[in-house]
Amino acid sequence: MPNNPPSFLTRVFAIWHRHVRVYNKFLLSNGLPPFLEPLIFLAGIGLGLGRYIPSMGGVSYVRFLASGLIITAAMWTASFECTFGTFIRMEFGKVYDGMLAAPISVRDMLISEILWAGTKGLFFSSAVLFIMFVFRVLPVSITVLVPFVGFLTGMMFGAISLFVTSFVRNIQYFNFFFTGFLTPMFFFSGVLFPVENLPKAVRPIAEIVPLTHSVRLSRALCNGVFTPDLVIDLLYIVAATFVFGYFAIKRLRRRLID
């Protein structure tokens, strides 16, 4: 009797496909905000703040901000997906228990979650980029590669968020992660102003947190200025994804398998 469970890739993509399917069910409510948010941003900055701050880091302030916000869009969506989304699938909907009854391991399932977080990061940063193209804030050039950074950023924050989720027993505790970690990071990772301008004492913190590295890659592509140390930023993202992903799987396995 031949008994061959599906291959690793089949398993991972079957779950990924499930997430896409569920997401697409609410195309309007899920698909519209990623485009609306950058529009609101453009209106606010272009008509307001941008008139007080004409340029930053050698480019117009609107453009400077745009290159950062492409990345934070990916960060927020991936983080929501792998905190609240994962928690609900795990604790309330028992969706994971259903999947784990099929020939799927905890590892397959969580790798797929991270891949899905990356996919959402890719989609959200593409949406922001599209609006920036339409309003000529960014040129259509090598900038088309920025969503790839959005994908990597989504995977990294997916892995970090899963790791955080592995500690969380009550869904309210995610507030600590969002207001205690992600929001402050938003202000000190070069999104709103270059980290080079930060006081010396604070600079190392900016180098440690993950968002700084994603923003640097995005800005390099948006401005078309590349330096060798971008390799370090890329390596940081890959390493963080693997390290947090590894420990998240390890910890969540213990929680899902009695």
Partner: peptide, 25 residues
Amino acid sequence: VPQEDNLDIELNVVENLDVFCRFYG
């Protein structure tokens, strides 16, 4: 067949089955 209903409430009847068929390749 688990004790608790854990169907994907976002998906309809056929889609729930279809998603599972993919899990088995």
